[in-house]
Design a protein around this nucleic acid. Structure first.
Length: 1046
RNA sequence: GCUCAAGUGGCGGAAUUGGUAGACGCGCUGGAUUCAAAAUCCAGUUUCUUCGGAAGUGUGGGUUCGAUUCCCACCUUGAGUACCA
């Protein structure tokens, strides 16, 4: 009876599904534990071996926790809204829902064959109306909320309206738009409904605003900052431009401080917390207001400094607000710089400087964001001709514009302190602006001095002699006295744009009356995606939903009705308002559905009275362990935290953070195979130009070895002769048409035209050069010794059908191996289906864990799987012999018990520490030892199965049942570790000389220090090592080591 | 540039409080079995060596009886981030 893994695995997967073995209960005496994977986007390509890595780890942990007596929730689902299905729909007309359904089927089959212990009864799909109904509901709650800075939480907007009615907004301390102005209760009550709605939008946690967005013309949509990589779209690499659009935004900035503080309370890796901190980007400093000086003031300064007054001409009075983290260096400010886009630039620029400034603004606006970022070294800027007044010295300081100041950060203006900031320093040097030194005893002749800790301020009036912290405090105090500044904290975190011009996403539950957004009542949700003919934006540039015919809201019947009935579509002037209004055409972004799905899983019966019932939310609280990729560090993981904090504020959930512990699994890399193709060139000088002309002919590939040229071209007489012969015999007679096909260079062909065949060959002699270029070969065509199956390769692509191969001397054709990201385009993906078929799911699971530490990136090499597969066979043989089960009731030996208990201890520790790779080694050692001990004792072999079952659930379940158990092994309790089986009576002491181990010596553990020393000193090998020398010192650590110095 | 992580045999990696470096597996070498192959089993496998030993965890220094582990400087690689005032 051998190990038939295919049968065993199919049998138990069926059993688990039929018996709902892993269905979690929402009522239990056991403590709860919630293990979650980041749910996948079901892409058409299916899974490769890199995808299940995190799922295997979480599954091991979930199964382990069940053995440890926890009520475990381990669900799975699909993030099924997304761009690829939409792109596919645009190309083929296929409805994205159909593509998505097909892909999910494939995913499910692939996941099932790996034997995960998911509770599929709780599956969620973000694109299901029953699910996105609640995404829409959360959106409505955000719309109906504002952020009260006094209570430091989100509150119902109705409270705000009450206050407005009673006392206006004078006492409101809210997170809101910068543009709000103050009004009294009387004002408020006199406003029209539209005016009131417009004001409220400035306070709501989701709001409509004209925002500059990242518009991707190729994708026809707006992208979030984290969807852009190096200035191009993350998907497809298309260029992105800045564009103003009216968009829904999320006031995530209200939560900046809490998102930052909350990091202290959760168990995430430092690097992940660090990226969130960077993303939030808190900086503490001051906001300072500078007065722009009028020409009269300037004249006054020049005439008589002492009699100068700060009487400001109200007509031309402008102020510039800047943010600085170094208010202590304010006396070092020798100029100011505005971003070219700053609104004040046009107002303050003098006539003399106007043309120069305008030219500069035009030039920078033409440069893309990407160019600006790439080109950091070039210093550019223009003087506006205007001056600002220094708040303390009252001296005029010139105002410049420069593109090193970004419009999008802070106020888009800086006070430039060249002695303390390298960018200001470089700018000042470049334009010959003075660089006053305000640091005591610091040389600034070469570069700026930015160190805070060792700073003592000088040449700064009342700040002289003060250290950094004190100076900052004093400067802020003095600024406040002048009314020209205050302490301020700035965050990099921007409000998140929430609209997408796409079809395949959640529709907004929003319609518009007189241009103002209205929420549809929750009881009428979900608002389902309408049918459209095409999935592209409309000709007029509206989102795809603009193509829907039935996409208007009837407030009389509370249903979606035909657009043609819409009040605005009819002759609105002459017809009375009929209560039918246009619906929102944008859809929600990908992160909407994924920001709360972990709560939906908590619901056991998928009730519809709430996004999850109160009892379910109370029971499961939040995710205890979350495993997924680090690519979500600043997107999904930040937005989820934001939504959870919001839901907490409004009393819908009881937790402040969604994910208590988070682990990022590392990427599994592919081992790409490269073949080297020989390119033939004709190297001619024509009209004084050196021309490299690639010749088109049969592809030639060369086996890879160490001596292969790869970087530059080379001459090879033999190969050249071969090529010329080929030219002579394969293609006679040479004439222009043939030459053109072959060479494709008109100039050269023309010059050869008048020559005979032999003359052409003579001409080409000595001008033929070669170069090797590498290209990917599919890894499935390569064996474990890096040999390419050349027949497969020829059949791979039509262009290689007649390819020639230059093999090694032994006839093999080798490829070069390189480790890269696993991807379809690199032809290095390994499909788990094949692995499961050939080695089984248990082997796959063990091998993925065995590869290395979970969080580390590591290359996949299928050849290595034989190791763990051999282990499973060996395990099988330990339990099952030729004539059936060999397990009996034999009394376990001391060695048996020692092996078992050392394994229990190690595996337990490993799982708790997520060190899954080392447990696999431990299992191998245990089986090797028990096999050597010829162990047949059930008392040992039965508990061993439980310890192994989280890793290899199928084989252990089978053997468990063969041992006569009729309950699933997943219900068994983890065996208890007993220290007594590991207690030793003696120790094999390493004997070191000057720290180097030279030999070992077996001594009883209860031996005293002195006796150990005596025993070691008396040993022959000690005498040999010392070679007659007298040791200076002997260190004896009982139970550990002996070290002899001298 | 900044932040973080990491550097150990031919390869993946182990060494969990500073205490026997290279566990476990792959690959490779030799052997057994076989008509042969696969599979399986046994032995060996860091380097050098005068076969006694000696050196050795990116480089250089330090702390220590003792350092892959702690400290300092540097080099390399990977990831993230970027004119953030």
């Amino acid at each position: 009876m051998s190990y038939h893994f295919n049968d065993i695995e199919a049998k138990w997967q069926k059993y688990w599904a039929e018996n709902q073995t892993f269905k979690a209960s929402n009522t239990s005496d056991k403590p709860k534990y919630y293990v979650l994977d980041m749910f996948p986007y079901p892409s058409g390509a299916g899974l490769h071996v890199g995808h299940p890595l995190g799922y295997i780890a979480s599954d091991i942990y979930a199964r382990y926790k069940r053995h440890k007596g926890f009520n475990v929730l381990h669900p799975q689902g699909y993030d099924s809204f997304g761009l690829p299905a939409e792109q596919y729909a645009i190309q083929t007309g296929q409805h994205p829902a159909i593509t998505t359904e097909t892909n999910i089927k494939t995913y499910r089959r692939q996941l099932d064959q790996i034997g995960f212990s998911f509770d599929w009864s709780r599956e969620v799909r973000t694109s299901n109306p029953e699910y996105y109904k609640w995404t829409q509901w959360i959106f409505i709650q955000l719309f109906n909320s504002w952020y009260n800075n006094n209570s430091n939480k989100a509150e119902n907007i109705s409270e705000l309206i009450k206050i407005f009615k009673a006392e206006g907004n004078a006492n409101i301390n809210a997170v809101c738009d910068d543009t709000v102005y103050s009004f009294s209760a009387e004002d408020w009550n006199a406003y029209t409904s539209e005016e009131q709605q417009a004001i409220l939008l400035q306070y709501r946690l989701t709001y409509l605003a004209e925002t500059e967005v990242n518009w991707c013309p190729a994708l026809g949509t707006v992208l979030a900052n984290d969807e852009i990589v190096n200035g191009v779209s993350e998907r497809g690499g298309h260029p992105v431009i800045r564009k103003k659009m009216t968009q829904w935004s999320m006031r995530i900035s209200a939560y900046a401080e809490r998102l930052l503080q909350g990091l202290e309370t959760i168990d995430w890796t430092d690097s992940l917390k660090e990226s969130q901190r960077n993303w939030i980007g808190k900086s503490v400093g001051a906001s300072v207001t500078f007065n722009v000086m009028s020409s009269e003031m300037l004249k006054q300064v020049q005439h008589d400094k002492s009699e100068r007054h700060s009487e400001l001409d109200s007509e031309s009075h402008h102020t510039i607000e800047v943010f600085t983290t170094r208010p202590d260096t304010i006396f070092g400010a020798s100029f100011m710089t505005l971003a070219p886009e700053h609104e004040l630039v046009s107002k303050i620029t003098t006539d003399e400087q106007k043309s120069e400034v305008e030219a500069y603004i035009l030039a920078t606006s033409k440069r893309s964001e990407r160019d600006r970022m790439a080109d950091v070294k070039t210093i550019s800027g223009v003087f506006t001709g205007a001056y600002a007044e220094h708040p303390f010295t009252k001296e005029p300081i010139p105002i410049w514009i420069g593109d090193y100041v970004l419009a999008g950060y802070g106020t888009g203006a800086v006070m430039s302190v060249p002695c303390g900031d390298q960018r200001d320093y470089d700018f000042a040097k470049h334009f010959n602006i003075p660089i006053p030194n305000i640091f005591e005893g610091v040389d600034i002749s070469e570069e700026a001095f930015a160190d805070k800790d060792n700073t003592v301020i000088a040449n700064s009036d009342f700040l002289n002699g003060l250290k950094y912290k004190k100076a900052v405090k004093t400067a802020i105090y003095e600024l406040e006295k002048l009314g020209q500044g205050e302490g301020k904290t700035n965050y990099r975190l921007r409000d998140a744009v929430f609209s997408r011009q796409r079809y395949w996403g959640e529709p907004f539950p929003v319609y518009y009356v007189n241009g103002m957004p209205q929420m549809i009542e929750a009881k009428h949700l979900p608002i389902r995606l309408p049918e459209v003919e095409k999935y592209l934006p409309t000709e007029t540039g509206e989102p795809p939903l603009g193509r829907a015919d039935v996409w208007a809201w009837d407030t009389n019947t509370n249903t979606v009705v035909s657009n043609s009935l819409c009040h605005s579509a009819l002759d609105a002037e002459s017809i009375e308002d009929n209560g039918i209004y246009p619906l929102e055409l944008n859809t929600m972004p990908g992160w909407a559905g994924s920001s709360w799905y972990f709560f939906r899983y908590m619901e056991d019966a998928m009730r519809d009275e709430a996004f999850a019932s109160e009892t379910a939310l109370k029971y499961w609280e939040n995710v205890d362990l979350y495993i997924g990729g680090s690519e979500h560090a600043t997107g999904h993981l930040l937005y989820s935290r934001f939504w959870v904090k919001f839901l907490k504020d409004r009393g819908f959930v009881g937790v402040e953070e969604p994910f208590k512990k988070l682990i990022n699994q590392g990427m599994i890399l592919g081992t790409s195979a490269f073949v080297y193709r020989r390119i033939t060139y004709i190297n001619v000088v024509n009209n004084g130009l050196i021309r490299w002309i690639p010749v088109k002919h049969v592809p030639i590939f060369k086996s890879f070895n160490e001596n292969l040229f790869t970087d530059k071209s080379f001459k090879d007489e033999q190969a050249e002769n071969k090529f010329l012969n080929w030219l002579k015999f394969e293609l006679p007679p040479l004439h222009q048409l043939k030459l053109k096909q072959l060479i494709g260079d008109d100039l050269l062909v023309d010059s050869l035209n008048s020559l005979s065949n032999n003359e052409i060959l003579d001409f080409l002699k000595g001008k033929i050069e070669f170069q090797y270029v590498k290209l990917h070969a599919d890894v499935s065509m390569v064996n474990s010794s890096d040999e390419l199956d050349t027949e497969d390769f020829k059949n791979w692509r039509a262009e290689f059908k007649d390819a020639e191969f230059i093999a090694e001397e032994d006839g093999t054709f080798k490829v070069k191996r390189e480790v890269e990201k696993m991807s379809k385009s690199k032809y290095n993906v390994v499909n788990p289906d094949n692995i499961c078929e050939q080695y089984g799911a248990d082997s796959l699971r063990l091998y993925e864990m065995f590869l290395g530490p979970l969080e580390q990136a590591k290359p996949w090499n299928t050849a290595g799987i034989t190791g763990v597969h051999g282990f499973l066979k060996k395990l099988w043989k330990l339990y099952v012999g030729e004539n059936g089960l060999r397990v009996n009731d034999a009394e376990p030996t001391k060695d048996n018990l020692k092996t078992l208990h050392k394994t229990i201890k190690k595996v337990e520790d490993d799982i708790e520490n997520f060190s899954f790779n080392t447990s696999v080694s431990t299992f191998m050692i245990a089986v090797n030892e028990l096999t050597a001990q010829k162990c047949t004792s059930k008392a040992i072999l039965e508990p061993l199965l439980i310890v192994l079952s989280p890793y290899a659930p199928h084989i252990t379940e089978e053997l468990w049942s063969q041992l006569g158990n009729n309950q699933s092994i997943s219900t068994a309790m983890f065996p208890k570790f007993e220290e007594k089986h590991l207690v030793e009576s003696s120790k094999n002491y390493p004997i070191s000389f000057n720290g180097k181990m030279r030999f070992t010596l077996e001594l009883p553990l209860d031996m005293s220090k002195d006796d150990i020393e005596a025993a070691v000193m008396a040993h022959d090998k000690t005498k040999a090592q010392l070679d007659g020398r007298e040791p200076k010192k002997v260190i004896v650590v009982p139970g550990k080591i002996v070290n002899i110095v001298g």
